[in-house]
Design a protein around this nucleic acid. Structure first.
Lengths: 345, 345
DNA sequence: TTGAAAGCGTTACCAG
DNA sequence: CTGGTAACGCTTTCAA
């Protein structure tokens, strides 16, 4: 195994150019006031030698890395990667765009990893999305002095100058959907949730059960157990087998797959089955019928997260957090004509 | 509780515990052979003080960062983020998963940035996807001593121990699609390409024009000019306005949007219009009719890329590159019954 | 104008 | 077994 040529360092350039390290640094960075002749000479020498400054050494000097971590914490024990679900992919897109606009790069963090491996990454700050209840990752980063943006629950006992939050009232959003379905005549609403570790699922499901109790309805829940787009197939089929008159999916479903499953079960939306799904897939508007969707605004929230995070990092004061409202877009899949509603109620 | 501002350093712990830096380092890292009493004492002190090692300093010491860059180079001058297209999102997913499996993190790089800003990131290596012809980013990284995996064209004049490639024969893939369409009776095939900077587009389009010449057909091409999922709407409509009997989209289109456009134009696939699209959207199999797709295997290629990259970084010898074959999945949208084909030919 | 030297925080090598 | 010291590669302060 031949060792690649030892990189040429600042001091090498200095020696070659017959000047000191300081002069090379100044010449290359435009700092200091050197005679043009010296500067040009040094630059030319550096170019000839193929000198490139060592990024890590600069960072150590600078005291910051301009690197932000991004972690999605659903299914923390399952080691998966999340970027191929519409919600997370939009989240990654928007976070990255916002970070770049501020001169920061984004590092995709694993959901899980041996011990607290993640604190070994040279990060200036971290966004933790869909945190676990009392998330250890959040605590780890905070105690390592790394600023964190997550939701209120994850930061409950850790409030301090190093953290801010972005959050939803998941319960309220869930109730909005359920009220809507009920207003359209639904009596047997099945919830497709996920056995994930995210507090989002737990909170939403809890709200669903409470709502059912209030309305004297039996809660019916099926569970996604396998992360990723394919994992929803089974729980959707299970939901259909419960003879529901409405299905509300908490876990992200591909719109076409959902409708395909409905069709195979011999059901028709919205005629004998109302459908609302939590999804960011833009194709939901183009299906037949178009699907009603609940959106947790990955674009807006991740932009806000990154902005808040960079505010902490750069020492700006500001609001401690931001609360968003989920957006329910009612489309044909959960909408019955008034006459029809009258008939059923 | 603890003062966050002045981070507690190794030397602080050493002083507090009444030992030397070395001892603290050894105690915390499990290296060296210390008496249990000393080790426990140091560890307890460190814990009490909330000591966390500085990641950047460790990296400088270690000489590597375990960070990989990922750059997609379509539309390099347009500053956009690519992760919300199925192809790139799967690419990111698979790259990240593979990297993590080897203990590396992934940094999403901007398509464009001021000067050569990117070399300031502390990366051990970089994957450059869909490079520009003679890509400057590739050259920059290589001259900075950072290993690169890209395609053959981008590495043409830069072969060396610091680079390997993963590539397709785009021309061959294009011809496969065109031959297929012709075999199904198509005579007026419109290509929906993109005015992007990726060599993928140029090569494919070139092959299309050559093929048309060989078959004495007039090439008809429309262009995506705006990056992102929405940019394909206009060129698809333009393509439909050309009264084609087949459309082949090079740029990624959302399957449902494509079919919606076809419907609005009063056309029907596959009866009077054959459709093949380059897409990674799994929903293509569930549309009505199911769409024929050409896949450039983002999953397989990015896994191979990351593996090759890590081989270079860790000094392993191996193949200089890997050539893949694009996969054409023929579905109903481009398939006519034999009888029908006979009728037309 | 230039350069020597002092950090940045860590780990590794040797003396003691 | 322990601890001083050097080294990683750079930037910056401060003297000459």
């Amino acid at each position: 195994m031949s060792r690649p040529d030892p990189r040429v360092r600042l001091v090498d350039v200095a020696r070659a150019a017959g000047v000191s390290k300081t002069t090379v640094s100044d010449a290359l960075n435009g700092s200091g006031r050197l005679p043009d002749a010296t500067r040009d000479h040094v630059r030319e020498t550096a170019r000839l030698m193929g000198y490139r400054p060592n990024a890590t050494a600069r960072l150590l000097r600078a005291g910051h890395t301009r690197l932000l971590g991004l972690a999605a914490r659903e299914y923390v024990e399952t080691s998966w990667v999340y970027t191929d679900m519409a919600y997370f992919s939009q989240l990654v897109t928007a976070s990255t765009r916002t970070a770049l606009a501020h001169g920061y790069g984004v590092v995709l963090l694993p959901t899980t990893s041996p011990g607290d491996h993640w604190v070994n990454m040279p990060l200036d700050g971290v966004c933790v999305v869909d945190p676990v209840d009392g998330d250890p990752m959040v605590a780890d980063f905070l105690s390592a002095g790394v600023p964190v943006v997550s939701d209120r629950r994850a930061l409950a006992n850790l409030a301090g100058p190093l953290s801010r939050w972005v959050d939803f009232d998941y319960g309220a959003a869930t109730r909005t959907v359920l009220d809507h379905l009920k207003s359209q005549g639904a009596q047997r609403i099945v919830l497709v949730s996920a056995r994930s570790t995210a507090s989002y699922n737990a909170e939403s499901e809890h709200a669903y059960r409470d709502w059912c109790t209030e309305h004297h309805l039996d809660p019916m829940v099926t569970m996604v157990t396998i992360p990723g787009p394919d994992g929803v197939r089974l729980p959707v089929d299970e939901a259909l087998a419960m003879h529901p008159d409405a299905i509300f999916t908490l876990a992200e479903v591909s719109p076409l797959m959902l409708l395909d499953a409905v069709r195979r079960a011999g059901r028709t939306a919205p005629d004998d089955l109302l459908l609302v799904c939590t999804s960011e897939d833009p194709s939901a508007a183009y299906t037949d019928p178009p699907l009603s969707t609940l959106s947790y605004l990955p674009k807006e929230t991740s932009e806000a997260s990154v902005d808040l995070l960079i505010d902490i990092i750069e020492g700006r004061k500001g609001v401690p957090g931001k609360l968003f409202d989920a957006h329910l877009e009612v489309r044909a899949s959960s909408f019955r004509s008034a006459a029809r509603v009258d008939l059923l109620t």
